[in-house]
Design a protein around this nucleic acid. Sequence first.
DNA 1: CTTGAGATGTTT
DNA 2: AACATCTCAAGA
Length: 195
Amino acid sequence: MRPLPLSFYARPAAVVARALLGQRLISTVGGAPCALRIVEVEAYIGPDDPACHAFEWHRSPRNESLYGRPGLLYVYFTYGMHWCANVVTEREGFPAAVLLRAGEPLEGLAAMRRRRHRAKDTDLASGPAKLAQALGISRAHDGHVLARAPVWIAEGPPVLAHRRGTSVRIGVRLGADRLLRYFERGNPHVSPPRG
DNA sequence: CTTGAGATGTTT
DNA sequence: AACATCTCAAGA
């Protein structure tokens, strides 16, 4: 399927986050095509956001991709064993991104189950590290342009506002006042809490 | 359904 | 010491 234009990502991170709900995330890592419908995301927005990895313009080899052009993948390693995938947004030089938190499996279920050992379908990609693992995304894909293989996003039916839920971001202490998590309400592939 | 602990390594 | 997490086991 045809990738979204890179101009899609050159907007405020919260706008891109909401627009990403319902889009199709595709991976051909490892050869087998896999596709997820994006059902949960979070925005991390710039040097004033204490939960953003680039708070106060912090810059290091780890988060270099955050400062790149919109449409790049920012992949980071966390908790000693997990990878998480973000989409860089806004403009080059301004660090803002959308964390891809959960997806509903559409294609390539066998390959995703292989990478996710014993997972039920609602456990294949219902969390950021699960999603990255299901699609085979890791360090090798940090800085990859989301407009070509092996990872890209194609157009899908958007999640309309009345089906959308909003909450604080999961697992963050600083910046916990901001409502920057967006998800499709009631979808069992969203990570808890699903309300 | 919930809670709690352990795994594991990079960054601060 | 904290961390944008997951899994398993145990309890309600």
